[in-house]
Each structure stands twice: as C-alpha cells, then as structure tokens.
Design a protein around this nucleic acid. Structure first.
Length: 282
DNA sequence: TTGTGTTTTATTGCCTCC
DNA sequence: GGAGGCAATAAAACACAA
C-alpha cells in the first residue's frame, strides 16, 4: 500500500468522494438527479465545479455522501490546454492549476496521468497505422516485382525455345564460311576458330542466362538463380555431334573443320592456342 | 427502460529517481 | 525513504440500441 499522502480522499478533506462499495448505477440515479439535474441539465457536473464552491464547506456538506463526478467542459478545456503545452506538470504548476480549477492537486495529477495514458494508446494506434501503411506499400511493391519476375522468366523460356528451334551448328558453319570467303588465310581462320570456341564456352558456362529446356519442351529447373545449367550445353553439343557424324560419312566435306574444332574444344577445355595440326586443316 | 459497450475518474502496486 | 510515474484495474458516468 502506497502511503505518504498521495491519495486524494484520505478523510482529511471535506471534498472526499465517498464511493460506496456496492453501489450500482441504478441505485444512484435517483440521488444524482436530485442533487444535480436541477442545476445541471447537461447531466455533467464537476466534482468541484468552481473554485468558490471548493472553498465553501457547506457545498460538501450538502453533497455528502457523494459519488465521483466528471469534470466540467471548462475544466477539461483548461486541462487539455495545459497538457498541450506540457504533458507533465511541475509541482508548482500542478498546485496553481488545481487552484484555478477548484480541484485537488492530486486530481490534476491523476487527470494528467490518465491523459498521458490515453495519449500513449492513441500514439500506439497511429504508429500501427503508419507501420501498416508502410507494410502494405512494401507488399504491393513486392507483388509487382514477383509478377515482373514471372514475366521475365516466361520470356526467357520462350526465347530458349526459339533458340532451340534454330540450328545453331549451321549458323556457326555459315559464319565460318563467311570468314573463309572474306579472309582466306590461316591466321584469320585461327581467329574464327577462337571465336567459335569462345561462343561455345559462352553457351556452356551459362553466362548469358537462360531457361533450361529439355527434349520435351521448356522447363524451369530451379527457382531462378540460374537458367543455364548443363542440360542446355548438351542440347547444343548434341547438335554439333550430329554434324560431326554427317562429316564422318563424307556427306559434307566443306564444313568438317568447324565440327572438329567444336568437338575438340569440348574435349580439351584447356586449349588456348589452337595449332594447325590440331584442327586438321591446312 | 434496460442491457451493454465505452469513456472517465480514481485506486493499487510496483518501480525509479533523488 | 518519500515523491511521483506507469500499468493494470475498478467503478462510476455516459451513450446508445433494442
């Protein structure tokens, strides 16, 4: 039990508000109307309406036993004004305000305490609203990004399909033929071989980023970290092998060097300086 | 009029600070 | 150890629908 005179109604004050333990609203309705209604049609009356009344002992004698009453609009207005200026009161301010309002200093302190509690609750609600708005915004952005990501994924799959449909090997052959026509020297051919090897490395390393497509059709292998694993590589190498087998049976002599280079590059990843003997064409 | 939910006023117990 | 703040709570006052 807290002592030290902090309690408002300790029996020493004439203004003591006798809260009757088991009193219910209905029990007091009658007496309240008798006490208050005639002089206060608004049904709201301060415990101490005015400072003058506070000073009149007769006032309390007439009111006893009393219930707690709400503060008047004026009192609340002044209290709100003070609270807006400063949400905690210095003891002197409290005493002064209490005098001005005709209240016990303790009542003023309690009012401020309760007011701070209400303010805190409201502040929590405001903070919640701000956080919720922020969360909703982030969620919306996230959804947009997810949709965009899905769209890009499907585009990648579509492009991979198209790429699969094309005969990459024949494209390479065309390229090398063009190089041959434009620069029919060995040095330039070596450069062409380098280019082809580079292109193959690029495909096999997955640095271009692509969806994985198997024999049956487009298929994403994982959630999106990489769209260019080994299966892709094998699709293209299968096509190269096919060319090589064609070459083996002598059906296409002109392009044999290309497939050799391609196959050789696969088998000898460490090759950096192709020699004339290596590609079997001089 | 009454039941019920909300708001306001006040108490209690605990904690911190000086 | 007293003063004062806060959280939790009680209870009165009030609002309002049925």
């Amino acid at each position: 039990m807290d002592t030290g005179g902090r309690y408002l109604f300790d029996g020493s004050c004439h203004g003591s508000m006798f809260v009757l333990g088991n009193g219910s609203d209905s029990i007091f309705r009658g007496s309240r109307s008798l006490l208050n209604m005639e002089e206060n049609p608004n049904k709201k009356r301060a415990f101490f309406s005015y400072a003058e009344e506070f000073m009149e002992e007769e006032f309390y004698d007439e009111q006893l036993p009393e219930k707690k009453r709400r503060l008047t609009a004026e009192q609340v207005h002044l209290l709100e004004k003070s609270f807006a200026a400063e949400n905690k009161l210095e003891p002197e301010q409290k005493t002064e305000l209490a005098k001005k309002l005709g209240l016990q200093p303790r009542q003023v302190a309690i009012w401020f305490q309760n007011r701070r509690a209400r303010w805190k609750t409201k502040q929590l609600e405001r903070d919640y609203d701000v956080l919720k708005a922020s969360y909703d915004s982030l969620l919306s952005n996230y959804d947009t990004i997810v949709k965009e990501n899905e769209k890009i994924k499907s585009e990648v799959v579509s492009l991979a399909e198209q790429l699969k449909a094309k005969d990459v090997t024949s494209m390479g052959v065309e390229l090398c033929q063009k190089m041959d026509q434009l620069h029919p020297t060995k040095d330039v051919d070596i450069v062409a071989v380098h280019l082809c090897v580079k292109a193959e490395d690029y495909l096999s390393s997955g640095s271009g980023g692509s969806a994985v497509v198997d024999e049956d059709g487009p298929q994403l292998v994982d959630s999106g970290d990489s769209y260019f694993p080994n299966e892709d590589y094998q699709i293209y190498m299968g096509q190269v092998d096919g060319v090589q087998s064609e070459e083996d049976d002598g059906s296409d002599d002109g392009q044999s060097y290309f497939s050799n280079v391609f196959a050789g590059a696969v088998q000898q990843q460490e090759v950096t300086e192709p020699s004339l003997g290596w590609w079997g064409w001089s």
